[in-house]
Design a protein around this nucleic acid. Sequence first.
DNA 1: CTATATTGGTCAAACGTTTGACCTAGGGAG
DNA 2: CTCCCTAGGTCAAACGTTTGACCAATATAG
Lengths: 339, 339
Amino acid sequence: MKKKRISITDIANALQVTPSTVSRALNGGGKVSEKKRLEIISLAKKLGYRPNPIAKSLLANRTQTIGLILPEFTHHFYSRVLAGIESITSKAGYQLLICTSNENQNQEIKSTLTLLDARVDGILATISKMNDKFEHIQEVMDSGTPLVLVDRFSEEIETPYVISDDFKGAFSAVDYLCQIGCKNILHIKGPDNLSTTFNRFMGYKEALRKHNMPLKEELVLESSDPKLVEKIRLCLTRHQVDGAFTYSDYLAFEIYKLASQLKIQIPEELSVIGYADEPISTYISPTLSTVNQQPFEMGAMSARYLLNKINDPEVALEVKNLETKLMIRESCKVVETQS
Amino acid sequence: MKKKRISITDIANALQVTPSTVSRALNGGGKVSEKKRLEIISLAKKLGYRPNPIAKSLLANRTQTIGLILPEFTHHFYSRVLAGIESITSKAGYQLLICTSNENQNQEIKSTLTLLDARVDGILATISKMNDKFEHIQEVMDSGTPLVLVDRFSEEIETPYVISDDFKGAFSAVDYLCQIGCKNILHIKGPDNLSTTFNRFMGYKEALRKHNMPLKEELVLESSDPKLVEKIRLCLTRHQVDGAFTYSDYLAFEIYKLASQLKIQIPEELSVIGYADEPISTYISPTLSTVNQQPFEMGAMSARYLLNKINDPEVALEVKNLETKLMIRESCKVVETQS
DNA sequence: CTATATTGGTCAAACGTTTGACCTAGGGAG
DNA sequence: CTCCCTAGGTCAAACGTTTGACCAATATAG
């Protein structure tokens, strides 16, 4: 049974004053003699008084809580985003109410409702991959609850968001592959209708263009393709592929497997760059070159942004595009004289 | 600015009844005519009424919230624990208030206070590695807030906990190594004064005993040893080590690296088993045998246990020891005729 | 026809805190 | 001495909800 915690009225009764006086003594609102103030404070300390945030919330209509919706925790990326968010919110004295959508839009909608019901002061959310409904997002905005989207956004709805600069990230990777002399660069695209998929593909195309290399349809594959493995194999054997840039690190590992089967040496015959900088990249052999999205910073930045919005509703609608970092490791061949 | 949400009194005023009637109509507490009931319900729906849990909490002295303290999120293990917890609590209609200790006891103490202040209905916590203070744990227990420790515990304080059966987990791994004929089995221990370190070591010893193999001091190393890498190298070269069981998967990868340097073939010359079943284990080559601790189940079990305690304070103090699963992969040599 | 039970509701307190309005006693100015 | 100011407090409302006590009207039993 939860023990009753001592309240401001308990102190008031013990000292023959009113709760108001105790409140003012504790919060420094004047109107209380120095003597009484000290008396109250010392008794409060002695009894281990701790204010009840629930009562405060009810009155103030703010909960010092921010809601977070993430698709899942198991990818390293989201763990880092979460850590980044936590680092900021905990310092600012906010609690974190966390929900998972499991990449399922219905759960996402449910979570949104839950958070709204809980009267969180703001919401950070990564919308699920498959998203075609936006009523719940609209509802959040209508409710006046500050909202910042993280990592993914949709053009269907005008919200502030913080994302990684996928275009530049992809561009830098493919640009690098070109620089070290790759002539046939394979790209494996991510899930459809995700802005990240689109932007990374654009970055790939732009880098090719910069180096006056043609875009070859047959070198662009889709991760959702059930025959993906077959098609990669085909690419590697028929099209003299000497470079690969994949939507994710895990897709890069698929290439590792096939290369090993086909006795293709990485990086001597094939340079590979993945995306996301999962920790596994540095443990696998050869260590995988990849694009780091600074997820911790992304989380921290979203949280800072949201806190700003909470404290000043007039803060401008903004879009933050976070720089990526190209991590070159053993999976890219080394050239002596770099162009 | 957060929009005022419509309250039970708003409905009451609109319909010329008292808030009590509305409350009873909505919660089915009788004492309201069918006609009025329908009227109230339909207006509530129309206005999008949603009860304010904060007001309820204040009255009921329960928040439908459970507090969670984890050391960090970035290890896959804790992500899975978190996912397991979330799967249970969300179904049961509880919110999750999450804090990180960063393996730092002071932060852990601060988090505990925060959760207590927030009046959570129960706490799930993984205490940090270095722990010598228990006043905060005691304070939780004194407050009457149900508490369940997860993954780690301390004998200094009598709390219920859910852990993985490290002894059996380690035993099964080393037992397997013995069965496939390993004669000199290296063990790398984990951080000092962690119960998991101790129990896995005990499992190692017990398995050796079962197979009548002597415990060789020189084959037991400490992960915290600054000269660890040197010592592993020494073991591998001098002591005819043909099996290795490590406290973590990552330590196993250290062995992979050294084996590769020393041209020792895994698994032909050296069979390796790690611990934790990090996803990377299946991506690395050769895929790593390891001990799966069922972290998702651990989280789920802790959450179920805590919910029981919350609903019935008389529930017995118990200790749950979760079964592990030995995952045999490519890093263990295959023998035709198994003893 | 009276006593009683039932139905359908109202009232007010309670949860813990904050805060504006109000009160009172004492001190200083005129 | 009266008037006003101020320091130091009290009172009550408010936040949104639940709930036990109460009450009036109607129906039922005897």
